[in-house]
Design a protein around this nucleic acid. Sequence first.
DNA 1: ATTGAAGTGGAATCCTGATTCCGATTCTAG
DNA 2: CTAGAATCGGAATCAGGATTCCACTTCAAT
Lengths: 183, 183
Amino acid sequence: MARSDAVRNREKVLRAAEAVLGEQGLSARMDEIARRAGVGVGTVYRHFATKEALYQAIVTARVDELLAEAAQLRDSGEPRTAFFTFFTRVVVDAAGKKAYIDALRTAGIDPKAGQAGQAAEMRKAIDDLLREAQQAGAVRPDAALPEILALLRGASMAAETGDYPAGVLDRSLAFLLDGLRPA
Amino acid sequence: MARSDAVRNREKVLRAAEAVLGEQGLSARMDEIARRAGVGVGTVYRHFATKEALYQAIVTARVDELLAEAAQLRDSGEPRTAFFTFFTRVVVDAAGKKAYIDALRTAGIDPKAGQAGQAAEMRKAIDDLLREAQQAGAVRPDAALPEILALLRGASMAAETGDYPAGVLDRSLAFLLDGLRPA
DNA sequence: ATTGAAGTGGAATCCTGATTCCGATTCTAG
DNA sequence: CTAGAATCGGAATCAGGATTCCACTTCAAT
Protein backbone atom coordinates (compact mmCIF):
# COMPACT_ATOMS: atom_id res chain seq x y z
CA MET A 1 0.00 0.00 0.00
CA ALA A 2 2.72 2.41 0.98
CA ARG A 3 4.38 4.10 -1.90
CA SER A 4 7.94 3.03 -2.44
CA ASP A 5 9.30 6.56 -2.66
CA ALA A 6 7.50 7.53 0.49
CA VAL A 7 9.14 4.68 2.34
CA ARG A 8 12.49 5.71 0.99
CA ASN A 9 12.00 9.28 2.10
CA ARG A 10 10.92 8.21 5.53
CA GLU A 11 14.20 6.37 5.83
CA LYS A 12 16.19 9.32 4.60
CA VAL A 13 14.52 11.57 7.15
CA LEU A 14 15.14 9.11 9.92
CA ARG A 15 18.80 8.81 9.07
CA ALA A 16 19.29 12.53 8.74
CA ALA A 17 17.45 13.18 11.98
CA GLU A 18 19.55 10.64 13.79
CA ALA A 19 22.69 12.39 12.63
CA VAL A 20 21.55 15.94 13.24
CA LEU A 21 19.85 15.30 16.56
CA GLY A 22 22.88 13.34 17.60
CA GLU A 23 25.16 16.27 16.92
CA GLN A 24 23.02 19.13 18.06
CA GLY A 25 20.46 17.65 20.38
CA LEU A 26 16.87 18.80 20.60
CA SER A 27 17.82 22.29 19.59
CA ALA A 28 18.46 21.19 16.03
CA ARG A 29 16.22 22.86 13.45
CA MET A 30 13.70 20.95 11.45
CA ASP A 31 14.95 22.81 8.40
CA GLU A 32 18.39 21.44 8.92
CA ILE A 33 17.12 17.90 9.23
CA ALA A 34 15.09 18.35 6.06
CA ARG A 35 18.03 19.77 4.16
CA ARG A 36 20.31 16.95 5.21
CA ALA A 37 17.70 14.44 4.17
CA GLY A 38 17.50 16.18 0.81
CA VAL A 39 13.82 16.76 1.34
CA GLY A 40 11.42 19.61 2.07
CA VAL A 41 10.23 20.36 5.59
CA GLY A 42 6.74 19.44 4.53
CA THR A 43 7.89 15.92 3.82
CA VAL A 44 9.44 15.58 7.21
CA TYR A 45 6.12 16.53 8.72
CA ARG A 46 4.22 14.09 6.51
CA HIS A 47 6.12 11.30 8.21
CA PHE A 48 6.47 12.63 11.70
CA ALA A 49 3.77 14.81 13.18
CA THR A 50 6.15 16.79 15.28
CA LYS A 51 9.78 17.26 16.18
CA GLU A 52 9.11 15.50 19.42
CA ALA A 53 7.63 12.52 17.56
CA LEU A 54 10.64 12.29 15.29
CA TYR A 55 12.89 12.45 18.29
CA GLN A 56 10.97 9.76 20.10
CA ALA A 57 11.08 7.47 17.09
CA ILE A 58 14.84 7.65 17.08
CA VAL A 59 15.37 7.27 20.77
CA THR A 60 12.92 4.44 21.04
CA ALA A 61 14.68 2.51 18.31
CA ARG A 62 18.03 3.03 19.94
CA VAL A 63 16.84 2.01 23.35
CA ASP A 64 15.35 -1.12 21.86
CA GLU A 65 18.75 -2.01 20.52
CA LEU A 66 20.25 -1.52 23.94
CA LEU A 67 17.58 -3.68 25.49
CA ALA A 68 18.36 -6.43 23.03
CA GLU A 69 22.00 -6.21 23.94
CA ALA A 70 21.16 -6.37 27.61
CA ALA A 71 19.15 -9.52 27.06
CA GLN A 72 22.00 -11.06 25.16
CA LEU A 73 24.46 -10.21 27.90
CA ARG A 74 22.15 -11.60 30.52
CA ASP A 75 22.18 -14.94 28.74
CA SER A 76 25.89 -14.90 28.12
CA GLY A 77 26.64 -16.79 31.28
CA GLU A 78 29.21 -14.20 32.30
CA PRO A 79 27.44 -12.30 35.06
CA ARG A 80 30.70 -10.93 36.41
CA THR A 81 31.33 -9.18 33.14
CA ALA A 82 27.87 -8.57 31.76
CA PHE A 83 26.95 -5.75 34.13
CA PHE A 84 30.10 -3.74 33.53
CA THR A 85 29.96 -4.34 29.83
CA PHE A 86 26.44 -3.07 29.57
CA PHE A 87 27.13 -0.05 31.72
CA THR A 88 30.04 0.78 29.49
CA ARG A 89 28.05 0.17 26.34
CA VAL A 90 25.38 2.64 27.37
CA VAL A 91 27.89 5.32 28.24
CA VAL A 92 29.99 4.87 25.12
CA ASP A 93 26.87 4.78 23.05
CA ALA A 94 25.79 8.06 24.58
CA ALA A 95 29.07 9.76 23.78
CA GLY A 96 28.47 12.29 21.08
CA LYS A 97 24.78 11.60 20.88
CA LYS A 98 23.13 14.48 22.60
CA ALA A 99 19.78 13.03 21.81
CA TYR A 100 20.13 10.53 24.60
CA ILE A 101 20.11 12.74 27.62
CA ASP A 102 16.37 12.78 27.74
CA ALA A 103 16.12 9.09 27.09
CA LEU A 104 18.17 8.49 30.19
CA ARG A 105 16.22 11.03 32.12
CA THR A 106 13.08 9.21 31.12
CA ALA A 107 14.54 5.89 32.20
CA GLY A 108 15.00 7.46 35.58
CA ILE A 109 11.43 8.37 36.28
CA ASP A 110 9.07 10.37 34.16
CA PRO A 111 5.96 8.24 33.58
CA LYS A 112 5.39 10.26 30.43
CA ALA A 113 3.81 8.92 27.25
CA GLY A 114 4.09 5.33 26.13
CA GLN A 115 7.82 5.40 26.59
CA ALA A 116 7.11 4.69 30.21
CA GLY A 117 6.98 1.01 29.37
CA GLN A 118 10.30 1.08 27.65
CA ALA A 119 11.83 2.94 30.55
CA ALA A 120 10.58 0.27 32.91
CA GLU A 121 12.08 -2.42 30.71
CA MET A 122 15.39 -0.67 30.76
CA ARG A 123 15.32 -0.42 34.52
CA LYS A 124 14.49 -4.08 34.82
CA ALA A 125 17.21 -5.10 32.40
CA ILE A 126 19.78 -3.18 34.39
CA ASP A 127 18.44 -4.50 37.64
CA ASP A 128 18.77 -8.06 36.40
CA LEU A 129 22.35 -7.59 35.34
CA LEU A 130 23.11 -5.88 38.60
CA ARG A 131 21.66 -8.63 40.77
CA GLU A 132 23.47 -11.37 38.95
CA ALA A 133 26.72 -9.49 39.11
CA GLN A 134 26.27 -9.05 42.84
CA GLN A 135 25.36 -12.71 43.20
CA ALA A 136 28.61 -13.54 41.49
CA GLY A 137 30.45 -11.19 43.80
CA ALA A 138 31.55 -8.83 41.04
CA VAL A 139 29.65 -5.82 42.34
CA ARG A 140 29.48 -4.57 45.90
CA PRO A 141 26.29 -5.80 47.54
CA ASP A 142 25.31 -2.43 48.98
CA ALA A 143 24.76 -0.90 45.56
CA ALA A 144 21.08 -0.68 44.71
CA LEU A 145 19.37 0.11 41.45
CA PRO A 146 18.57 3.79 42.12
CA GLU A 147 22.20 4.57 42.80
CA ILE A 148 23.30 2.67 39.74
CA LEU A 149 20.83 4.57 37.58
CA ALA A 150 22.02 7.88 38.97
CA LEU A 151 25.62 7.00 38.20
CA LEU A 152 24.73 5.73 34.77
CA ARG A 153 22.90 8.91 34.01
CA GLY A 154 25.73 11.07 35.23
CA ALA A 155 28.29 9.14 33.24
CA SER A 156 26.19 9.32 30.10
CA MET A 157 25.58 13.01 30.42
CA ALA A 158 29.23 13.69 30.97
CA ALA A 159 30.10 11.56 27.97
CA GLU A 160 27.68 13.44 25.77
CA THR A 161 29.10 16.80 26.62
CA GLY A 162 32.17 18.29 25.07
CA ASP A 163 35.00 16.39 23.53
CA TYR A 164 37.58 15.04 25.87
CA PRO A 165 41.14 14.22 24.89
CA ALA A 166 41.42 10.60 23.85
CA GLY A 167 41.30 8.14 26.70
CA VAL A 168 39.95 10.48 29.33
CA LEU A 169 36.48 9.08 29.07
CA ASP A 170 37.63 5.49 29.31
CA ARG A 171 39.77 6.17 32.34
CA SER A 172 37.03 8.15 34.07
CA LEU A 173 34.63 5.33 33.51
CA ALA A 174 37.15 2.85 34.81
CA PHE A 175 37.43 4.78 38.08
CA LEU A 176 33.69 4.97 38.35
CA LEU A 177 33.28 1.25 37.85
CA ASP A 178 36.04 0.52 40.34
CA GLY A 179 33.89 2.23 42.90
CA LEU A 180 31.22 -0.35 42.30
CA ARG A 181 33.44 -3.35 42.96
CA PRO A 182 33.49 -5.07 46.34
CA ALA A 183 36.13 -3.76 48.71
CA MET B 1 25.86 58.54 42.93
CA ALA B 2 23.76 55.45 42.48
CA ARG B 3 20.20 55.80 43.58
CA SER B 4 19.35 53.78 46.62
CA ASP B 5 16.21 52.26 45.14
CA ALA B 6 18.05 51.26 42.02
CA VAL B 7 20.58 49.38 44.09
CA ARG B 8 17.80 47.68 45.98
CA ASN B 9 16.10 46.63 42.78
CA ARG B 10 19.28 45.26 41.38
CA GLU B 11 19.54 43.07 44.43
CA LYS B 12 15.96 41.93 44.12
CA VAL B 13 16.49 41.01 40.51
CA LEU B 14 19.65 39.13 41.32
CA ARG B 15 17.96 37.15 44.06
CA ALA B 16 14.92 36.36 41.95
CA ALA B 17 17.07 35.36 39.01
CA GLU B 18 19.14 33.10 41.20
CA ALA B 19 16.01 31.32 42.34
CA VAL B 20 14.29 31.09 38.99
CA LEU B 21 17.35 30.16 36.98
CA GLY B 22 18.20 27.63 39.65
CA GLU B 23 14.83 25.94 39.29
CA GLN B 24 14.31 26.19 35.57
CA GLY B 25 17.72 26.73 34.09
CA LEU B 26 18.43 28.91 31.11
CA SER B 27 14.99 28.29 29.70
CA ALA B 28 13.40 30.43 32.41
CA ARG B 29 11.55 33.47 31.08
CA MET B 30 12.68 36.99 31.77
CA ASP B 31 9.08 37.83 32.56
CA GLU B 32 9.05 35.27 35.31
CA ILE B 33 12.23 36.60 36.80
CA ALA B 34 10.82 40.12 36.70
CA ARG B 35 7.56 39.03 38.32
CA ARG B 36 9.33 37.21 41.11
CA ALA B 37 11.48 40.22 41.72
CA GLY B 38 8.34 42.33 41.92
CA VAL B 39 9.63 44.50 39.13
CA GLY B 40 8.96 45.21 35.45
CA VAL B 41 10.94 43.54 32.71
CA GLY B 42 12.29 46.90 31.74
CA THR B 43 13.94 47.19 35.11
CA VAL B 44 15.60 43.86 34.75
CA TYR B 45 17.06 45.04 31.49
CA ARG B 46 18.21 48.31 32.96
CA HIS B 47 20.48 46.36 35.26
CA PHE B 48 21.49 43.48 33.03
CA ALA B 49 21.85 44.01 29.33
CA THR B 50 20.76 40.54 28.46
CA LYS B 51 19.58 37.26 29.88
CA GLU B 52 23.00 35.85 29.26
CA ALA B 53 24.58 38.69 31.24
CA LEU B 54 22.25 38.13 34.16
CA TYR B 55 23.03 34.46 34.08
CA GLN B 56 26.75 35.09 33.98
CA ALA B 57 26.56 37.45 36.91
CA ILE B 58 24.98 34.77 39.02
CA VAL B 59 27.21 31.92 37.99
CA THR B 60 30.32 33.99 38.34
CA ALA B 61 29.40 34.96 41.87
CA ARG B 62 28.68 31.38 42.82
CA VAL B 63 31.86 30.06 41.33
CA ASP B 64 33.77 32.71 43.21
CA GLU B 65 32.26 31.39 46.42
CA LEU B 66 33.33 27.91 45.52
CA LEU B 67 36.83 29.12 44.76
CA ALA B 68 37.00 30.75 48.15
CA GLU B 69 35.95 27.53 49.77
CA ALA B 70 38.53 25.62 47.83
CA ALA B 71 41.23 27.99 49.03
CA GLN B 72 40.07 27.59 52.59
CA LEU B 73 40.11 23.82 52.31
CA ARG B 74 43.54 23.89 50.77
CA ASP B 75 44.85 25.71 53.81
CA SER B 76 42.98 23.53 56.26
CA GLY B 77 45.90 21.16 56.64
CA GLU B 78 43.63 18.20 55.99
CA PRO B 79 44.62 17.20 52.47
CA ARG B 80 43.17 13.71 52.91
CA THR B 81 39.75 15.18 53.45
CA ALA B 82 39.87 18.46 51.55
CA PHE B 83 39.66 16.95 48.10
CA PHE B 84 36.65 14.80 48.84
CA THR B 85 34.94 17.55 50.73
CA PHE B 86 35.28 19.96 47.86
CA PHE B 87 34.16 17.43 45.31
CA THR B 88 31.10 16.78 47.40
CA ARG B 89 30.46 20.44 47.96
CA VAL B 90 30.39 21.15 44.24
CA VAL B 91 28.02 18.31 43.53
CA VAL B 92 25.67 19.06 46.39
CA ASP B 93 25.76 22.70 45.48
CA ALA B 94 24.79 21.81 41.94
CA ALA B 95 21.83 19.73 43.05
CA GLY B 96 18.70 21.56 42.12
CA LYS B 97 20.55 24.40 40.50
CA LYS B 98 20.17 23.85 36.81
CA ALA B 99 22.03 27.04 36.18
CA TYR B 100 25.31 25.34 36.90
CA ILE B 101 25.49 22.86 34.10
CA ASP B 102 26.96 25.42 31.81
CA ALA B 103 29.31 26.72 34.43
CA LEU B 104 30.78 23.28 34.77
CA ARG B 105 30.85 22.83 31.05
CA THR B 106 32.76 26.06 30.83
CA ALA B 107 35.17 24.94 33.50
CA GLY B 108 35.90 21.97 31.30
CA ILE B 109 37.06 23.80 28.26
CA ASP B 110 35.35 26.55 26.31
CA PRO B 111 37.75 29.52 26.22
CA LYS B 112 34.68 31.75 25.84
CA ALA B 113 34.35 35.26 27.21
CA GLY B 114 36.12 36.50 30.31
CA GLN B 115 34.89 33.54 32.29
CA ALA B 116 37.81 31.69 30.81
CA GLY B 117 39.96 33.03 33.60
CA GLN B 118 37.59 31.87 36.26
CA ALA B 119 37.39 28.45 34.68
CA ALA B 120 41.13 28.19 34.75
CA GLU B 121 41.16 29.16 38.41
CA MET B 122 38.66 26.47 39.18
CA ARG B 123 40.73 23.88 37.38
CA LYS B 124 43.80 24.93 39.25
CA ALA B 125 42.02 24.86 42.58
CA ILE B 126 40.84 21.33 41.96
CA ASP B 127 44.22 20.29 40.70
CA ASP B 128 45.87 21.57 43.86
CA LEU B 129 43.48 19.70 46.11
CA LEU B 130 43.90 16.60 44.02
CA ARG B 131 47.69 16.64 44.13
CA GLU B 132 47.83 17.13 47.84
CA ALA B 133 45.32 14.38 48.42
CA GLN B 134 47.39 12.06 46.28
CA GLN B 135 50.54 13.12 48.09
CA ALA B 136 48.83 12.15 51.32
CA GLY B 137 47.83 8.85 49.84
CA ALA B 138 44.09 9.53 50.02
CA VAL B 139 43.49 9.43 46.28
CA ARG B 140 44.79 6.86 43.81
CA PRO B 141 47.89 8.21 42.09
CA ASP B 142 46.77 7.27 38.60
CA ALA B 143 43.87 9.72 38.65
CA ALA B 144 44.67 12.86 36.67
CA LEU B 145 42.85 16.17 36.50
CA PRO B 146 40.99 15.58 33.23
CA GLU B 147 39.41 12.42 34.56
CA ILE B 148 38.48 14.12 37.79
CA LEU B 149 36.85 16.97 35.94
CA ALA B 150 34.88 14.57 33.78
CA LEU B 151 33.62 12.74 36.84
CA LEU B 152 32.84 15.96 38.63
CA ARG B 153 30.88 17.18 35.69
CA GLY B 154 28.96 13.96 35.36
CA ALA B 155 28.13 13.88 39.04
CA SER B 156 26.99 17.48 39.00
CA MET B 157 24.82 17.00 35.97
CA ALA B 158 23.22 13.94 37.43
CA ALA B 159 22.59 15.79 40.67
CA GLU B 160 20.93 18.65 38.88
CA THR B 161 18.52 16.47 37.03
CA GLY B 162 15.34 15.11 38.47
CA ASP B 163 14.67 14.52 42.11
CA TYR B 164 15.96 11.32 43.57
CA PRO B 165 14.55 9.64 46.64
CA ALA B 166 16.35 10.82 49.73
CA GLY B 167 19.83 9.42 50.15
CA VAL B 168 20.27 8.13 46.64
CA LEU B 169 22.47 11.00 45.66
CA ASP B 170 24.67 10.68 48.72
CA ARG B 171 25.16 6.99 48.23
CA SER B 172 25.86 7.36 44.52
CA LEU B 173 28.45 9.95 45.28
CA ALA B 174 29.97 7.73 47.93
CA PHE B 175 30.45 4.94 45.40
CA LEU B 176 31.95 7.33 42.94
CA LEU B 177 34.43 8.65 45.46
CA ASP B 178 35.32 5.14 46.57
CA GLY B 179 36.49 4.58 43.03
CA LEU B 180 39.01 7.35 43.48
CA ARG B 181 40.63 5.89 46.58
CA PRO B 182 43.82 3.84 46.39
CA ALA B 183 43.24 0.09 46.05
C1' DA C 1 -1.16 5.51 -21.35
C1' DT C 2 -4.48 7.51 -17.90
C1' DT C 3 -5.98 9.16 -13.59
C1' DG C 4 -6.94 9.99 -8.87
C1' DA C 5 -4.74 9.25 -4.57
C1' DA C 6 -0.63 9.92 -2.08
C1' DG C 7 3.30 12.53 -1.48
C1' DT C 8 6.26 16.75 -2.04
C1' DG C 9 8.44 21.37 -1.53
C1' DG C 10 8.82 25.44 0.64
C1' DA C 11 6.64 29.91 1.24
C1' DA C 12 3.45 31.84 4.53
C1' DT C 13 1.69 31.70 9.15
C1' DC C 14 1.85 31.33 14.17
C1' DC C 15 3.84 31.29 18.53
C1' DT C 16 6.90 32.08 22.03
C1' DG C 17 9.90 34.77 24.24
C1' DA C 18 13.74 38.28 24.34
C1' DT C 19 14.66 43.08 23.86
C1' DT C 20 13.39 47.87 22.96
C1' DC C 21 10.94 52.22 23.77
C1' DC C 22 9.04 55.88 25.97
C1' DG C 23 5.61 58.29 28.87
C1' DA C 24 4.97 58.15 33.92
C1' DT C 25 7.42 57.94 38.38
C1' DT C 26 10.82 58.42 41.91
C1' DC C 27 15.03 60.24 43.73
C1' DT C 28 18.10 63.62 45.55
C1' DA C 29 21.04 67.57 45.03
C1' DG C 30 20.48 72.38 45.88
C1' DC D 1 10.17 72.30 48.16
C1' DT D 2 11.51 71.86 43.19
C1' DA D 3 13.59 70.70 38.98
C1' DG D 4 16.16 67.52 36.25
C1' DA D 5 18.18 63.19 36.08
C1' DA D 6 17.79 58.47 36.83
C1' DT D 7 14.53 54.77 37.08
C1' DC D 8 10.36 52.34 36.28
C1' DG D 9 6.73 49.48 34.10
C1' DG D 10 4.98 47.05 30.69
C1' DA D 11 2.98 47.43 26.09
C1' DA D 12 4.82 47.12 21.41
C1' DT D 13 8.34 45.31 18.48
C1' DC D 14 11.44 41.68 16.68
C1' DA D 15 13.32 37.40 15.75
C1' DG D 16 13.85 32.50 15.45
C1' DG D 17 11.72 28.35 14.50
C1' DA D 18 8.03 24.99 14.49
C1' DT D 19 4.00 23.82 12.00
C1' DT D 20 0.50 24.48 8.39
C1' DC D 21 -1.21 24.89 3.70
C1' DC D 22 -1.85 23.97 -0.84
C1' DA D 23 -0.61 24.07 -5.86
C1' DC D 24 2.20 20.92 -8.08
C1' DT D 25 4.44 16.15 -8.78
C1' DT D 26 4.80 11.16 -8.72
C1' DC D 27 3.06 6.66 -8.06
C1' DA D 28 0.85 2.54 -9.37
C1' DA D 29 -3.53 0.23 -10.22
C1' DT D 30 -6.28 -0.36 -14.29
